[in-house]
Amino acid sequence: MALTFALDPSVDPALRDGVLDLWADVSNAGGAVGFVPPVTREAIRPELVKQFAAMSEGRMRLLVGRDEDDAVAATAFFSFNTHRLMTHWVWLYTVMVHPKHQGKGYGRDLLAAAAEAARGFEGIEAIRLTCRGGLGLERFYGSCGYKEVGRVPGAIRVEPGDDRDDITMLLPLARLD
């Protein structure tokens, strides 16, 4: 069964808790979403609060995918540029699919829904994201149409002695109008 996507859902305790659970589960399964295992919901909460605050200020938007049980199963946050020379593209952050749903094509569905949503944002021509090297994520994003446009060797320190590349990917958005 496919996920149901919603852009800018109402932020209520159920959504907050669903995103916290998703983020913790993805992180603890080894997902590269800003934390390393083991991590708790309480350790993640301050980062989520920052993202929700940015949403309330209009600097971020949230795309949520829900599964057949209406549970939060996938997310992607859009972050808008404030620099006047870079307002034609958005960042995509915290791109996650719950581990129990991986391998079902939901990651591709999430990225397709994100591209469709971004096409509806006034003046947006591309999506940029970064990913952690060493996990093959750049191959996955590449298979979804993203191109590697930059790499900083060793920029992400997962732990002492384990430095990973910070890889920047870009998806130009073809206008459908």
Score class of each variant (00 low, 15 high):
residue 51 Q to K: 08
residue 38 P to H: 05
residue 112 A to S: 03
residue 88 H to W: 06
residue 147 K to M: 15
residue 47 E to W: 13
residue 121 F to S: 01
residue 128 R to T: 01
residue 130 T to K: 14
residue 5 F to E: 13
residue 134 G to M: 02
residue 73 A to S: 10
residue 81 N to W: 03
residue 137 L to H: 09
residue 121 F to Q: 07
residue 88 H to Y: 05
residue 123 G to C: 05
residue 107 G to A: 14
residue 83 H to T: 11
residue 96 M to W: 15
residue 125 E to W: 08
residue 32 A to E: 02
residue 10 S to Y: 08
residue 106 Y to H: 15
residue 48 L to V: 04
residue 30 G to R: 04
residue 57 E to I: 00
residue 133 G to N: 09
residue 143 S to N: 15
residue 33 V to M: 06
residue 91 W to I: 10
residue 100 K to I: 08
residue 121 F to R: 06
residue 56 S to I: 05
residue 50 K to N: 07
residue 21 D to F: 06
residue 77 F to Q: 03
residue 44 I to E: 03
residue 135 L to M: 01
residue 114 A to H: 05
residue 15 L to I: 15
residue 62 L to F: 07
residue 20 L to G: 12
residue 122 E to N: 14
residue 49 V to T: 07
residue 64 V to F: 00
residue 18 G to Y: 10
residue 44 I to P: 07
residue 29 A to T: 02
residue 87 T to F: 04
residue 148 E to W: 05
residue 114 A to I: 02
residue 136 G to I: 05
residue 61 R to G: 01
residue 62 L to P: 00
residue 6 A to D: 14
residue 131 C to W: 02
residue 24 A to Y: 04
residue 50 K to V: 06
residue 121 F to M: 14
residue 55 M to C: 10
residue 78 F to T: 02
residue 111 L to G: 13
residue 138 E to R: 01
residue 55 M to R: 15
residue 102 Q to M: 12
residue 108 R to K: 12
residue 58 G to P: 10
residue 87 T to Q: 15
residue 8 D to N: 13
residue 7 L to M: 15
